[in-house]
Amino acid sequence: MMAVIAAAIVIQRNLFAVVVLGGIYSFLMATALVALDAVDVAMTEASVGAGISTVLLLGALHLVRGDEAKPLGRPWLPLAVSIAVGGVLVYGTLGLPAFSDPEAPIHKHVAPRYINESLKETGVPNVVTAVLASYRGYDTLGETTVVFTAGIGVIALLRQRKRKDRDRR
């Protein structure tokens, strides 16, 4: 299903339709994430992907407006490159552990410690929150700073022009 939506996004040239499809895509992704037991992530994806980013894209579309121009050349080269990359990656997956394999390295490293000890050590039943804020506090501080910086960047990019407009008037 998601593959179909993605394919539709590739084909569709009206950007408005693409944005709406993007919203649907995000909701489907959120559903898939619930199915994969990642409820925290699914919640974020539903609110961010389907909510905020759709609104933002629409806002940006309002500013840049429009339909996409017809691609100039025939897209054979990019298609070939993409398919080649995909092929290599599929070959790569053959060496990876199968889905839901309890012996996979990902379940052997730090995860058991997080799951078994976090309630005792932090008193927070939601392991994701505990890891996010406590064990990986530095990471999250960094991420928050990135969000902060991006916000500042947007302000810096979009504010200056406004002042110029005012001067002209």
Binding site: D40, M43, N126, T129, A133
Partner: peptide, 13 residues
């Protein structure tokens, strides 16, 4: 967010 899914990121959004 401590007890169920949720937390600062989601709440902020």
């Amino acid at each position: 967010g401590d007890f169920g899914p949720g937390g600062g990121f989601q709440a902020g959004v």
